[in-house]
Structure formats: C-alpha cells, structure tokens
Design a protein around this nucleic acid. Sequence first.
DNA 1: AATTTCATGTAATTCGTTACATGATTCC
DNA 2: GGAATCATGTAACGAATTACATGAAATT
Lengths: 222, 222
Amino acid sequence: MSRRSGVLEFAVLGLLRESPMHGYELRKRLNTSLGVFRAFSYGSLYPCLKALVQRGWLVEEPSAQPEEQLTPRAQAGSLAGRRAKIVYRLTAEGKEHFEDLLSQTGPDTWEDEHFGVRFAFFGQTSRDVRMRVLEGRRSRLEERLAKMRASLARTRERLDDYTLELQRHGMESVEREVRWLTELIESERKGSERAGDERTRRPARETGSDRPSSGPSDNTDR
Amino acid sequence: MSRRSGVLEFAVLGLLRESPMHGYELRKRLNTSLGVFRAFSYGSLYPCLKALVQRGWLVEEPSAQPEEQLTPRAQAGSLAGRRAKIVYRLTAEGKEHFEDLLSQTGPDTWEDEHFGVRFAFFGQTSRDVRMRVLEGRRSRLEERLAKMRASLARTRERLDDYTLELQRHGMESVEREVRWLTELIESERKGSERAGDERTRRPARETGSDRPSSGPSDNTDR
DNA sequence: AATTTCATGTAATTCGTTACATGATTCC
DNA sequence: GGAATCATGTAACGAATTACATGAAATT
C-alpha cells in the first residue's frame, strides 16, 4: 500500500526540487539522468507519487488550463493544453524533508542501492557530506575486496577456470571503482583547499522565492 | 509460498550437482563461488530448498552418520548423531532439469540478473551455448551503450557535473565489460578451432559414480 | 483513418530481505 | 562455562515488476 521506498522516493523528490513535472516525464528523467543503475516503471512511480502527496511533500497541480482556450491543434505548437496532466510540485515540507535526506551520512548511504542516487544529487549536497559518502563507499569497497581476496586464497584450487575468471573480473571492477572514488575524493579535497565557499557548485538553493508566483506549469522544458 | 526464483534455484541446482551439501554450507558457497554479484540469506534459501524437494529435483538425506564414531561430546541423550543436518542431493530428474536450464539461450539469459550465474556454471555448459550467451550479452550491452550515447548527446548541457560524471563512469563500465566479453569470445573461438572435444574444460561429469559411496557429510571442507 | 506516443493508473505477483525463534557444537 | 559459529527454520514485510485497463493527442 505504501510504496515509499528509499531510492525511488529520494530520486523523485530530488528531481522535483529542480522543477515541477508530471509523472510521465519524471519517469523518463529517472531512467536517463539517474544513469544506468536503475530503471523504474509506472507501476512503481505513480503509487509512490500518491504516497508522497499524502505525506504532504508534494502537491498535485492539475494542469487544468481554462477550457475556453479551445485549441484544436495548439496554436504555436507550444506546450499549452493536453490531457489532464498532473504536475507535481515539491512543497516546503517536501523541500525540508529532502534536505534532511541529503544531509544523512548513515552506513546505508554508501551501499550499492543508495550510492548511485546519492551521487546523482551531489550537486545539491554539501561538501562535507559528499566527502563522507565518498570515503564511506571507498572503505566499504575495500572491505569487500579484502574478503574476496581472502576467500580466493582459500579456495583457489577448487574452482574451475570460469568461476575463477568471474571472480577475477568482479574484483577488477571493484578495484576500478575504488580508483575512481580516490580520484573524486582528491578532486574534492583540492576544491576545498582554495575557495572558501563559492566556486564549488553551491547547493542550488533559492531558485525563485518560496513558490513560483505565476503558473509553475509550462516548465516542462520539452 | 513458492519462492522458486530463477537465479537462486539455478545456483542451488548447479552447486548440488557438483556435490551434495546441507543448507548452511550451500549458502556460503553461493556467496563466494558465485562472486560479488549476489548474496542470499537463509530466509530465501531454505524455502527454496523445500520447494525443490517438493518438485522432486532434490532429496533430503538426514545426515544420520554411524554413531559408533564416538565424538567427545557425542550421543548421550541425543537421537542419533549430531543435530539433524539435512544433506540435499540432486535427483536424476533434478539433473535432467538442470541440464535443460543449462541449454537455454533465451533473451533473459544475458540480462543482468541471469548472466552472472549462467557464467558461473559455464564449466558445465556446452560451447555453443556459451557462445550464444556471451554474444547475446555483448550485443545487449552495445545496445545499451548506443542509447546512453544518444541520451547523453540530447541532454548534455542540462546536466550538472556530478550527474555527468556518473553517466560517464557508467558508460565506461559498460564499455569495459564489452571488451571483456570480446576477449572471452575470441578465446572461445580459438579454443574451438583446434581440438575437436577435449582440452576445453569438459563438462565435468563423472565425479565418481552416481552417488558418493561413503558419508557425504564431513565434506564441509573447512 | 490508423498508429504511435503521451499519460495515468490498479491488481497480482515476484523475488527477495529482516527479525525472530531455536538449538547443537566447538573453541577458549 | 561462556562465546562464537554452526545449523535450521518461519512470519512479516519491502520494493519493485508485469500485465492489465483506459484514453487523449500527435504523427503519418
């Protein structure tokens, strides 16, 4: 019934923070912006949106434009009227909640399921949190590497070539991610040495006042 | 109620084909042999074993070892030997079923969830099936790369640095796996040119007779 | 006019996990 | 004798999917 998930919820809040959107577009963004890692279907998305509305983090804004504007073929081809699209917008409570989520640095934040989506919103995350998440993930992966090496040493002889190759390739992937993280961490450190505040992708606050005064729809940017 | 999963079921059958085992050890093997990719818990494993027994693919063999073998703490008051460890053994039908599974080359076989476990049992898989699976996966990944590149070209400007970096790293991972697959495919091809049959890791049949004659317990190899 | 794409949703199912509950055996 | 590890299970939940159902708008 609830469908509030963690990853999906986080991503939805994060995307809607940037700009209001309706479900269909949201889903496309989820599956591209958020990269290779996750793909969500409508069956997950719509119930999730409903749940978020119920908690007061989103509001539905039926894109019900005045019907006097009967546009058989949409003059100017612009994004004016269509079927009752429901545009979702983040409320003030929603914003606050998302910022709470952004500031979390608990142990799951660097697990496989969460790390990708956390990283995707690093643009809105403070530098110290970014550092903790990156370093947390790196040491998590190093732990994993140690276990793999140990297990490999114990069982090397009993395994056939394919199993071994699978293991080898898996370890290499993890090692590669560790190197990637190390580069990112160093680059974060360099960024924080010079420059006290600005110049490092600020948290993107104040995109207008608390609520867009005029119609927040028509911002579907397509 | 059923819990027959696909991946877990496949892996259990495959491991038990090599030798009978009880649940606890099976789980350890699942989480090491099968590599980084999957970790299963008892909550999944035991119900799965039960289901496989019900279908006639496994039999439970209560490991009632001869109690003459005095252990220092031993029999006093207990029913038979130790606690009833349940050793699972593949039946003839189970073997047949697993071979059916091994010979499948449908489109899911190279999807993310299945590919790892399929590869882990390549040692028991015929060469032509191996080839189809490897090539299927490679072209699946190439498709994915094409989509990613297209989407990246469309949206490059709208994305912040972190999202972009995530995307870049994701693509590189996929490219790396493609190169890996290409090497494997070539090596398979080379292997099949010379040598008509032997010398390419035969399917590992006949590890003794149909059933291990002596007690299959104490094979816990630790 | 027909097809594709946009758009929203629900019900049932899948594939797993965590937390709980229990007890035996081995190590120190 | 106490802790760690071995060993087996069940109930409740979680987070998503697939398949289904519907219909409007744009493209051809």
